[in-house]
Write a protein that binds this DNA or RNA. Sequence first.
DNA 1: CTGAAAGCGCTTACAG
DNA 2: CTGAAAGCGCTTACAG
Lengths: 354, 354
Amino acid sequence: MQALTSGEGPWDADSDAPALVGRATIDDVAREAGVSTATVSRALRQHPYVAESTRQRVMTAVERLKYVANSNAARLASGQSRTVGFIAPMLTSWYTSELMVGVEEVLTHERFDLLIGTANSASRERIFRGDARFQQHIDGVILVDVFCGDDGARRLAALDTPIVVLGEQLQRITSVSVDNERGARLAAKHLIQLGHKRIALVGGHNDLDVAKNVPTERAKGFRDTLQAAGLRLPAAYVQDGDFTIPGGHRAMRALLGLPKPPSAVFFMSDEMAFGALEAVRDAGLRVGHDVSIVGFDDHPVAGPIGLTTVRQPVREMGRLGARLMLDTLDGFGTVRHHPMELTLVERISSGRPA
Amino acid sequence: MQALTSGEGPWDADSDAPALVGRATIDDVAREAGVSTATVSRALRQHPYVAESTRQRVMTAVERLKYVANSNAARLASGQSRTVGFIAPMLTSWYTSELMVGVEEVLTHERFDLLIGTANSASRERIFRGDARFQQHIDGVILVDVFCGDDGARRLAALDTPIVVLGEQLQRITSVSVDNERGARLAAKHLIQLGHKRIALVGGHNDLDVAKNVPTERAKGFRDTLQAAGLRLPAAYVQDGDFTIPGGHRAMRALLGLPKPPSAVFFMSDEMAFGALEAVRDAGLRVGHDVSIVGFDDHPVAGPIGLTTVRQPVREMGRLGARLMLDTLDGFGTVRHHPMELTLVERISSGRPA
DNA sequence: CTGAAAGCGCTTACAG
DNA sequence: CTGAAAGCGCTTACAG
């Protein structure tokens, strides 16, 4: 970018800056400061052995020339990509993008790049054994909703790539996790305490063969709680909502079409619960009265529309995950599990059965 | 990343690949194919003057070695950053992130990187005259909700950096735009036709001194339509909702607290309308009956909750904007304006006045 | 159509 | 604490 042509105000050119053809390089700075490029490089990266006076001179030259290091050259020379991969089964869900924002926030601050990837069943193999984008030039990978059992986890841990898992806990892999079973228990208990007997469950990813852990754990917590209360969960009361808004809509319609529809439904994500709203309305019923609904996430729209939900601090999980990755890359890499708190937020979408 | 340790299934090592210490470089490929590195480079980038048989041999070697070019080296050598900047006043709104997803989609496909930036009043100057991240190593900039009048537009156009503007139309700058005035007119007309006389307006960015164009244009279309219908718009009926959910909540609460509250409100974004929902509920009123609400965007949750809104194809706008940027960078850079269609989607949040 | 070689702008042992 | 120099892995005129 060059200086602007003329005129006043915020779009003005900065007339203080020395005229340059193209951008200043490290050589320009070295010349200006009267030192070698090596010294400039060291001064700029907080290298310990640089005289304070030298550092000052370098900084002055940097300011004057508005020098910014060419990161391509820096990465090539140092062999460090300063890039972290981010892999999730579904990039468009609120949950995923919120995690991504958190991750991006701290990574950008540390001048790292983020490489985004989806992980459906077709691509998951490629990713770990040679996907074009991930095969090289990546320092580590942040995984969301990992799609593997204990066995897969063991193999993941054996990779020589730093890995951080978000949203669940895996053996021998650093993670920022949430107790999914407990979250589902909170939701189930809440509905049981309200007096509901016919409670349905809407999850997803049943046929994707990816991202199985999260729905599996939530389903378990839910079933266990119902069972402990002596309640049945008929097969027809378990629907696949695909973790999307339209999926939630379909699932709810199916449930309401049953001979004996449930009086309450737990959705494993708020977005699915949002989709359900329309189905309830179309059936001429009222949420919170005729049908109670509980979601999972605490999406920003959950509050405004009064959705009872299991809240998880998603953005915070993303931030923490990124920090753990950075720690690992810095060599402070003991495997750690960071549990995040889950809380039930009661709002008006759940009430006593009619 | 290295091969996995052992075991079967999707986490297996690929035993066909030649053992390599580190990654294959262009030299490895050249050796394997029996050609020079220059030829490998040409073959890989669809250079016209490469014999078909040579290209085949190179490709085979690439496959065998699972070669992937080091983009840092490629960018350094070619002098092309293959990076596009994306600047918006508010990164967390649905509108902005949806645009970003669209942009990211086509940019990634073309192996371009995206550099994200916010543009509040404090930083907008820096961006164009020397922000560390944008000063260099960027091929072009995509601007959302540009914050300048005709004068600013003229200066923007004079920059030697390719620019594409999203969401509105500016003199002499390529854009993917929407007729904001018309959108607001659609909303106003709809409410007027339903019989409303007391109609309020909730916009935002009033004190940010950024992103003024969009709210200004929408306000104009709205005012003009009311005036043409002989309706007044008292100052108290114009509120700042900050383009956020909490902002919409506050604005609605203020409106409902008025001695003579409006019977209908037009929000310049769906998210603000979402925030209003809670305020309406808290006041013991019903949306679509006691108060009609119209939004702008057609956010994914608008359908499920039945929000009447002015729909704009946001993701599509992002995609198109990215393509226009790529065209510009390829030298096909005539200034063009691509208008996108706006349509009113009538749902249950708007009805006849009580 | 292909190769030898310079060069992109940094970083980093290696000396001093 | 600092400098000279090699090298990171590509691309691209320049010859042929």
